[in-house]
């Protein structure tokens, strides 16, 4: 297992009022993303525990692209990864943002 942490400053706060949301499951080639609204509006943090060791550079690129595209201010993402491919990671992150910015509790 490998632990990775990313911290980004972002332009805008993520919309919506929901406090947390979860997508995905931990299985081979899959991951779960827990997203919580716990940070100041201009910050975003991503904590990853992954079964695939040695892919820090790929994660850096995928997370950088995600933060640039969605500006998820105020959100902390916690990821348990079962060795998902980068496209699956991007998809789950996008689903997590969409879920927490939806209306509802």
């Amino acid at each position: 297992m490998e632990d990775l942490r990313f911290q980004h400053s972002v332009r805008t706060r993520a919309g919506g009022a929901r406090q947390s949301a979860i997508v995905g499951v931990v299985a081979s080639g899959n991951l779960e993303v827990l997203v919580e609204r716990v940070l100041p509006d201009a910050e975003c943090a991503i904590e990853i525990r992954t079964a695939a060791v040695g892919f820090g550079e790929v994660w850096t690129a995928v997370i950088g692209d995600f933060v640039e595209r969605y500006s998820p201010g105020g959100l902390r993402f916690s990821i348990n990864d079962g060795g998902a491919r980068p496209d699956t990671v991007s998809l789950r992150l996008a689903q997590a943002v969409r879920l927490i910015t939806e209306n509802g509790q």
């Binding site: 979860i22 931990v26 992954t50 079964a51 348990n80």
Partner: peptide
């Protein structure tokens, strides 16, 4: 699971 170096799930 940590002892076996396996991924956990939050629930």
């Amino acid at each position: 699971l940590k002892i076996f170096d396996l991924p956990e799930q939050f629930d």
